[in-house]
């Protein structure tokens, strides 16, 4: 089942990318999608029926707006630190615990953290994310866990888990 879903998704993606509805194009796309789904199907989401639940899409759209807002904030933050004459940075790597369980959710969380103000995810070991932070605002683990993961964790939990 998940192979078929991945096949359909990659065919749609191919058609968007080439944007031509001619027969040779569709044949090439079908062959490429079959090869892709054969190779990468086992990495795809295990329960594909979750893709049919509409409330997940609603939370995904909410998450998208939150994400764009955080991303803009991140850029202004970096711009401020770069252009400031004294360069207010206090970098370091902190350890953050996440409540998310599945691999896909952790991947999405790590990617979101990379785009939020001043943080890059370095590694994930079990439930712990290691985050490089350009300005450590607090020494207390609970406080900085809230600052880093608080904005995204609840939305990702609703989207994926």
């Amino acid at each position: 089942m998940k192979y078929i879903t991945l096949f359909i998704l990659s065919l749609i993606f191919w058609l968007l990318l080439t944007f031509k509805l001619t027969v040779p194009n569709i044949i090439v796309g079908t062959v490429a999608s079959v090869i892709c789904s054969l190779f990468f199907g086992r990495f795809f989401v295990t329960n594909v029926y979750k893709l049919l639940q509409p409330q997940r899409y609603f939370w995904f759209i909410v998450y998208l707006f939150v994400f764009i807002w955080e991303c803009l904030k991140a850029n202004l933050d970096v711009a401020y630190r770069v252009l400031h004459p004294a360069m207010p940075i206090r970098p370091g790597i902190v350890k953050v615990k996440t409540i998310l369980k599945s691999d896909l959710a952790k991947m999405l969380l790590a990617n979101s953290i990379t785009m939020t103000p001043g943080t890059i995810s370095v590694d994930i070991i079990d439930d712990n994310l290691y985050i490089h932070w350009i300005y450590i605002r607090s020494e207390d683990p609970e406080v900085y866990t809230g600052i880093i993961t608080g904005a995204f964790e609840k939305y990702i939990k609703r989207i994926i888990e």
Binding site: V78, M87, I89, P91, I120, H132
Partner: peptide
């Protein structure tokens, strides 16, 4: 150019 080490430079490089 301005930030001091590799890790901080990657921050600017990725986000902006």
């Amino acid at each position: 150019i301005r930030l001091p080490d590799t890790y901080n430079r990657l921050q600017a490089a990725t986000k902006c």
